[in-house]
Write a protein that binds this DNA or RNA. Structure first.
Lengths: 159, 159
DNA sequence: TCTTGATATGTTATAATATAACCCTTTATC
DNA sequence: GATAAAGGGTTATATTATAACATATCAAGA
């Protein structure tokens, strides 16, 4: 999987690889990738973009799954807790994790024009946020880093 | 004003100074700091913490102001647009800007235990986010950076 | 000053996002 | 198989946010 940028690519393999990876992670963590959880991850992987909880829910509904809000939120919470998906605060949306490494602090690049989201990795402790936190005596446990702007595709289309 | 950290301080002067600064900024920008906008900023400055829109709204209501949701959202949007307040995505809440400088990209340090929020400044373009964006050909227009963790006060209280 | 366009406010209604709470089922373990 | 722990199904409701439209206020030129 690796980095997911804005470049279009054939990601038919992403879904399979993502599910396989999820299976490994869940096994290692001693938790269960149940059918609903697996299906939600699959939906996120297939769409390859940030999706709202109710959008995921609609999918499940159309497939005949039970589809009350808690169904989606529980599955999404699970995926986020185990690092298989991320929540994009700015969009109130969720996206499958596209970073292959272990524990990572993602930074999201969100295109205003097309809504595409790229995930990049970084070392939050090492940079300026870490420095700011140390200056305030603050212990960082998690970081939300989201950049809004325009992706290269949209700039090329409407410069 | 300057940096707002976790240290307690007498911020009676903060309110006055914040309002004066807001007046200058609005005059310079040719926009109006109307009574409602001013009052909402005053509330945020006085509380000195992140407040939800409906919490601000309750205040206005108790003071006899009209208090339908758009009243609060419009005032808060105005304050955010002009850099007088910030939206904390992670909390769906708003906080008065406590950074005296000009255009700045704030990073927020949010304490899980007590909910306090400190605002620090940084240079988003220079750091790792800038590097990640350049690597993806992404043009950054705004950055949300929020760190969750524990503030020094809470760690001292319950280590 | 009058008019006019732009901006702001008041209000109703509703959309979008998220969680509480309860009960039942499935799974893992002894 | 008994039992505890985790997950799922469902109802209801809480929380956050905006659309839409009528009225009021302001700024600036005719």
């Amino acid at each position: 999987m690796g980095e997911a940028g804005f470049a279009t690519h054939d990601h038919s393999g992403c879904i399979e690889a993502g599910l396989a990876r999820a299976g490994r992670i869940c096994t290692a963590a001693g938790v269960r990738l149940t059918p609903i959880r697996r299906r939600v991850l699959e939906i996120l992987l297939a769409e390859h973009r940030a999706m709202g909880a109710y959008e995921v829910l609609d999918r499940l509904a159309r497939e005949g799954h039970p589809a009350q809000p808690p169904v989606a939120y529980r599955a999404l919470d699970f995926l986020v807790r185990h690092g298989l998906a991320h929540r994009i605060e700015r969009l109130n949306a969720f996206i499958a994790c596209s970073h292959s490494g272990r524990d990572h602090a993602p930074v999201f690049l969100i295109c205003r024009a097309c809504g595409a989201v790229a995930e990049a990795g970084w070392q939050p402790g090492g940079g300026q946020i870490g420095a700011a936190a140390r200056a305030h005596g603050f212990r960082v446990e998690a970081v939300v880093a989201e950049a809004l702007g325009t992706c290269p595709n949209c700039r090329a289309a409407a410069p």
